[in-house]
Amino acid sequence: MEHYDRKIIDRLDLMAVNIRKHVIEMLYRAKSGHPGGSLSAVDMIVALYFAHMNHNPKNPNDPDRDRFILSKGHAAPALYAVLAESGYFSVDELKNLREINCMLQGHPVCSYVPGIEASTGSLGHGLSFANGVALAGKLDEKTYNAYVMLGDGETDEGQVWEAAAAASHYKLDNLTAFIDRNFLQIDGNTEEVMRLESVRDRWSSFGWHVTEIDGHNMKQILGALNEADNHKRQPSVIILNTVKGKGVSFMENNVDFHGVPPNEMEYNMAMEELDLMQKKLEG
């Protein structure tokens, strides 16, 4: 494992708590949305935007930028909060999630929101889209990378495997996929709904370079991203072992919080926990 400055890790951990607070706040205000899968995805998205990707919020269409595609579009609150904190748009805008006449739709739309690369929400499309981005990068001899996050349940979709085959066929080593492996989808445990194991063997047999990490450990996340960027002639997939609802104790591993927002009591409890965590990290 490479050495990372403790300060960078601390800063990212703190930002992740900040983003989790945004997510809870947004969903509580909107009275709808998906807490579980937003919270499990937070750490990787924070690491990408605040420590890894080459991107410029002042120039969201820079042709040389790295691209991140949130294929599991229902985790939009996490991405919106990260984009706002990065400066793509005002943090104030987060209050308007899912409201009429506002740009932050329930699922991301590329034509409305600066920084959103692909419209998602119907599962299974994002990896194919990222393949297109990576193919264009190869064609134009650009050095950018394409990153895409899929839910573990999302990989039930057949299109994911069409795309997995194509990425490997075209040797898209400028592409890295993340599997948010939280073991839960709406109807229950992923292994009971439609068995996915062995996730590692599946991707490996499709010709992908596979790494598996703790998806909430910033050090491991940054290490895996660097490894994936440097791996040649194969696309990389990072299996993020995550906890659905991560950061809010009563939401963790609780499938009831897949698509149900917190009520007032739950909101207060969640914010209290996250505030405590924030204070602890601030030392």
């Binding site: 990222a130 297109g132 193919l135 134009d140 299109q159 194509a166």
Partner: peptide, 22 residues
């Protein structure tokens, strides 16, 4: 780009290419 017998992937890949100016 030969996409094989995988039309869904072909369409979404085309969208990704278009997002990069193709």
């Amino acid at each position: 780009f030969e996409m094989g017998i995988a039309e869904a992937n072909m369409i979404s890949t085309a969208a990704g290419l278009a997002s990069c100016g193709k």
